[in-house]
């Protein structure tokens, strides 16, 4: 145990050295001063909360879109399966940033919708649908055909089967990939800046340009995003351990 933590500290030190090296060789280092960002603190904090809100809302809605896509992909009617498949291809083939821009400028604006935040969340929720569908499919596949046969011959009704047998098992396997998707969403939410949503990246980018604090600004960005993602990754590891028994 002790040995392992020493290795961990050494690894941290390596990254510390890297940061030190970057800072040391940076030409304008005499002027480096994080405290000059302080006045913008409330604004930055607000945008941090907005990013968190966007991420959680997108996660929430993408569960619905993902579920609908899942239903389409297991539909008996080939039409629905094709509709789903084509949507998959569109998403897998297009960069998120292009998807967001297209959704906003070519679909939302012509339709007279111009709430950037909501359009952003909607675009994100649609973009995540195929990923969420994969998570659901994986979870459903964790329940094998034998169990469905047992459900049948033991005489459980459909709703009982879902409530007592299928959903409890799905919940156990669904968390780690779900949180993986959430970190993807958090990182990807910075792209909503292209349609002018005042989330974390957008705000810090604006502030650092106004105050000419580029290094400080980018450093702060790193830290603030990591502050969201690292706890989530730790949480998913913890849950994974909890349910694997």
């Amino acid at each position: 145990m002790i040995k392992k933590s020493i290795h961990f500290l050494l690894a941290l030190a390596l990254y510390g050295l890297l940061v030190f090296f970057i800072a040391y060789s940076y030409p304008g280092k005499e002027n480096f001063d994080m405290t000059r960002l302080w006045p913008a603190g409330p604004e930055i904090f607000q945008s941090w909360l907005l990013t968190l809100y966007i991420s959680l809302a997108s996660l929430f809605f993408s569960m619905f879109t993902g579920f609908v896509l899942y239903l389409a992909s297991v539909s008996k009617l080939p039409f629905f399966r094709y509709v789903g498949r084509i949507f998959d291809e569109i998403v897998f083939g297009s960069p998120l940033i292009v998807f967001i821009i297209a959704m906003y400028y070519f679909i939302a604006i012509p339709m007279g919708i111009n709430n950037r935040l909501n359009v952003g969340i909607l675009a994100f929720s649609l973009y995540m649908a195929p990923y969420m569908k994969s998570v659901l499919l994986g979870a459903m596949e964790s329940i094998d055909a034998n169990q469905y046969q047992a459900i049948q011959v033991l005489g459980f009704s459909k709703s009982q089967a879902y409530r007592y047998i299928i959903i409890p098992q799905i919940l156990k396997v669904i968390f780690p990939p779900l949180i993986g998707n959430l970190t993807f969403i958090i990182k990807g939410s910075s792209l909503l800046s292209v349609i002018g949503v005042k989330e974390l990246y957008f705000q810090i980018d604006r502030i650092q340009a106004n105050l000419l604090l580029y290094v400080e600004g980018y450093l702060l960005m790193f830290v603030t995003y990591l502050l969201m993602t690292i706890p989530l990754v730790a949480l998913s590891r913890w849950i994974e351990k909890k349910v694997s028994v």
């Binding site: 169990q147 046969q149 047992a150 047998i165 098992q169 156990k172």
Partner: peptide, 11 residues
Amino acid sequence: FVFQSHNLFPH
């Protein structure tokens, strides 16, 4: 009904 494999619910 009892199957070839046990079919107990794993959770």
